[in-house]
Design a binder for these strands. Structure first.
Lengths: 248, 248
DNA sequence: CGAACGTTTGAGATGACTCAAGCGTTGTGG
DNA sequence: CCACAACGCTTGAGTCATCTCAAACGTTCG
């Protein structure tokens, strides 16, 4: 069941069994990809989308001097470039961060879903809008948080998303990113991220060693990063940091 | 024709006359709203969306201390909170910046479109994805540009969008924003925006006095802000800054 | 005329950057 | 099995962009 994590635990839009089966049928191929492989390049016309089954992927925009800004990090269960179905041409690259397993869904298969099971298309639209909501949370992070807050916010968000994917117990999860990746996510330099990681460690907010993130007190980390998980549309009981809203 | 500017000059998805008529029929009410009025609050359940006909609107997220980050600025023709149709609850506020004229489209009317004219729903989905593409350009702006670049990028983007709306001649346009608005857009303080505006003026990149933006050389401003309009999906001939890509 | 609001300027503080070097792991070929 | 290359992490010193705080200066409008 390759699609089992897609839209899992999302408020009001869990997939019906028939919808899940339909989506499963839309998969043309499942394959593994090495780390740091580019899957889609900005400006190319594409006719298929990628559902991430295992591993981490990113979407990013490079500037003129080669500096990179990540605009999304994807966890298992994410329909990484579903938005290329209506758009056809993307404004950014799509790549793996770690080794990954992906399912390829041809756009022609999505056309078939559109006629045969419109309720599923509604949920696909919904999924692209959650993606946009995450973009907005990232805008808040970059525009209004200091370096420590940005990293705290990102790790809190990733923790919340991995919990719904069944890949975090709420305090520990595997995250195969480098400090340079974190820098490209948070709009910082890798040198400064290094100093921030030390500070997070010293303040007992979070550790990150050999691809393992440990968060002793997720609530406190969420507060430091002003993280409120509402925008992820996760079933309420499952979202860490939910309580922080009340504590404002 | 209240919808005349919606998706105008967008690559491959201009509305057919029948679609435009259908959308026009979906409008329940057209009204004027004063400046700085909140239209939707984060977390509220909503049953209608707002199409902006005249004026400027914003979407924003406030932090704990009251600092505000704008996540979108809307120009006439934008379907401001179309994403609330699938989402029902938004993660941010929606407000007018200037006095505005808006058309109210009940979600029940969009339900009717879904069954009667699915091709139009496809284009509405597309519209929400352009919105997301703009979010990504803003992420790049906040994460990788310096203060001058951020303002230059924003003004170049706004110029491009107003050209398709028929509200800029490519070098001059009305923009009823304060320097504090620019600060909340660009993740800066209003004091610093003020110094940046002076620098833009001194370098003859741009002036902004009494709500009028003048850009003597749009190409040069776009280059300084690393602005490439591809993400707006505007019909190629109409996009200023398009040539800057070649000049890299 | 005065209040409200937005703009402008100055001085000083600070968070993040740049450049540079050293350190620790991991994987690989001699 | 060792040596070394590659890569990522860590640290230091100095610089710079942006922020903070504070005050003054237009405009606009009632």
């Amino acid at each position: 069941m390759f699609t089992e994590r897609f839209l899992r635990d999302r408020r009001g839009v869990d997939l019906e069994p028939a919808e899940r089966a339909m989506l499963e049928d839309a998969i043309a191929e499942v394959k593994t990809v090495g780390p740091r492989q580019i899957i889609v390049r900005a400006g190319e016309r594409i006719e298929q989308s990628t559902l991430l089954i295992e591993g981490f992927m990113s979407r990013y925009i490079d500037d003129r001097r080669g500096l990179r800004q990540l605009v999304a990090v994807h966890v298992p269960g994410d329909f990484v470039d579903l938005h290329s179905y209506p758009l056809k041409i993307l404004d950014h690259d799509v790549a793996t961060m770690t080794a990954a397993t992906v399912a390829i869904v041809p756009h022609t298969a999505l056309d078939r879903i559109k006629t045969d099971m419109p309720s599923l298309i509604d949920k696909l639209w919904f999924a692209t809008l959650i993606d946009a909501a995450i973009h907005r949370a990232w805008l808040f992070r970059l525009g209004r948080l200091d370096a420590l807050g940005r990293v705290a916010h990102f790790l809190s968000e990733t923790n919340a998303r991995l919990i719904s994917a069944g890949l975090s117990d709420g305090r520990r999860f595997a995250l195969g990113l480098t400090q340079n990746d974190l820098a490209e996510i948070c709009g910082l330099t890798s040198v400064h991220v290094n100093r921030i990681m030390r500070q997070l460690r010293e303040e007992r907010l979070c550790t990150f060693r050999s691809s393992l993130v440990e968060i002793p007190d997720p609530e406190r980390l969420a507060r430091r990063g002003e993280f409120d998980p509402a925008y992820l549309y996760i079933t309420p009981a499952l979202a860490p940091g939910e309580a922080s809203k009340a504590q404002r």
